[in-house]
Computed example of a mutant assay.
Amino acid sequence: MTYTEIINGLYDLQDKDKVAFKAKKFGVISNNSLGIYHQDLKVIAKDIGSDNELALQLFDSGIYEARLLCSKLFKPKDVTEDLMEKWVKTFENWEICDSFCMGLFSKSDIASAKILEWSNRDPEFEKRAAFATLASYCMADKTSDNNLFEQFFTIIKREANDDKIYVKKAVNWALRNIGKRNIDLNRKAIEVANEILEFESKSAQWIAKNALTELQKEGIRMSDYPRAIYRIPIVKVH
């Protein structure tokens, strides 16, 4: 599919009622939106396949849904720091922020560095990008040891008092996902959550209580990463 064919196809799916519905129901407020659901964009992206040049063209169109498509068409290993900075500064809601963070940023070789850098940002969705990337990075990186992830507890505790709704939700998300990586990080994440519980802010209280509810749940599902350490191989007896 060509750029023009894709843009025309997006306009064919235009539904302004969905723009209003997404804003009211999910808090997705976006400029230049056509009103196409994320699940429909995933189908379109699957039909197109990976295409970096086309992805960049779509992003530069300024159409909201075309930018979402960019996050699904660009190859994660080709993401550069310049592109990450260009894109992160345009995020206007949690949907597009998370789409780029989960689909591209968390799979980048510089994910860890950008998580630490963006966690110091003031704009709501730039800071959310740090923790949304971290939450996904916990599952994207299947081989790194615990030391890599333990370093992120410092920024989680530091930003737990941020009362911006989409920041605190992402901080909570990141804490929970680190704690679901393996049994040792689960124990450490619970300790961190209890430390945050001592903070006075409402955001910290919510982050800690919500995380503890999930991390201490009986039968919690964990990923056992890195599996070379945390997954005991099954030995078949003949």
Rank of each mutant, 00 (worst) to 15 (best):
T4E: 12
I6H: 10
I7K: 04
D12I: 12
Q14A: 12
Q14I: 09
D15Y: 07
V19Q: 08
A20K: 15
A20V: 03
K22L: 15
K25I: 05
N31G: 04
G35V: 03
I36E: 02
H38R: 09
Q39K: 14
D40T: 01
D47Y: 08
D51F: 03
L54Q: 09
F59T: 08
G62L: 10
L68K: 05
C70W: 05
S71W: 00
L73T: 06
K77C: 04
T80S: 12
E81P: 09
E81L: 15
E95K: 08
I96A: 10
D98F: 06
S99Y: 03
F100G: 05
C101D: 07
C101T: 10
G103T: 10
K107Y: 13
S108V: 02
A111V: 01
I115E: 00
N120D: 14
R121K: 12
E124F: 11
R128C: 04
R128N: 05
A129V: 06
A132L: 00
L134I: 07
M139K: 00
F149S: 02
I155V: 15
I156E: 04
D163M: 14
K164Y: 09
K164I: 02
K168V: 07
K169A: 02
L175D: 05
R176S: 03
K180W: 05
R181T: 02
I183L: 13
D184T: 10
N186W: 12
K188H: 14
A189Q: 01
E198M: 12
K202D: 08
I207Y: 04
I207E: 02
N210K: 14
K217P: 05
E218K: 15
R221E: 04
D224T: 07
Y225H: 11
I234Q: 13
V237R: 15
